[in-house]
Amino acid sequence: MLNTLKLLLPALLPSWRFFDFIAPSPRIQFALLRSEDEVPNDWVLFRPRPAYLSFTQMLGRMVWNPVWNESLFMVSCAERIIEQPTQHSEDEILKRIRFELAADMLGDMKYIQFRLVTVQRVEKELVEEFVFQSRLEPIVR
């Protein structure tokens, strides 16, 4: 209860510091593995953004935007993990990646894992940094 009230407080006394500085931006990448011992090499970016969206599509997203909003929630979870890893955030990301993957993509894969890579600008260059790797999660079918 106390924890929930602590979560409520920033809504009652908001900081309103939107985009005060542009923090390193997390990317979620996942890998599918056949065994616990397998070393993941093929990391796949989760939900890469589309190359182009028409204005009509953008208008549609004004009222129906579940995938994007879920992706923003997963980014929040990723930011929480980077700040201070929690089981909740790791579970949420793993669960949502698993939910998204179709059966034919899973094939005979037994485990799923994700990692977080941040992108930030250092001077004039964009720099990627690996910051977190999740536990192996058995794929339940």
């Binding site: 309103w16 985009f19 005060d20 542009i22 589309p50 992706s71 923003l72 600008r121």
Partner: peptide, 29 residues
């Protein structure tokens, strides 16, 4: 909070938002 940040005053911060932040909804943006 934006106006006290030199990166916002120069336009660099908004450039960063478009260049590498999570937010732009498509690559073309």
């Amino acid at each position: 909070v934006k106006v006290v940040n030199p990166d916002w005053r120069s336009g660099r911060a908004l450039r960063d938002v478009f260049q590498f932040s999570t937010y732009p909804v498509s690559d073309s943006l």
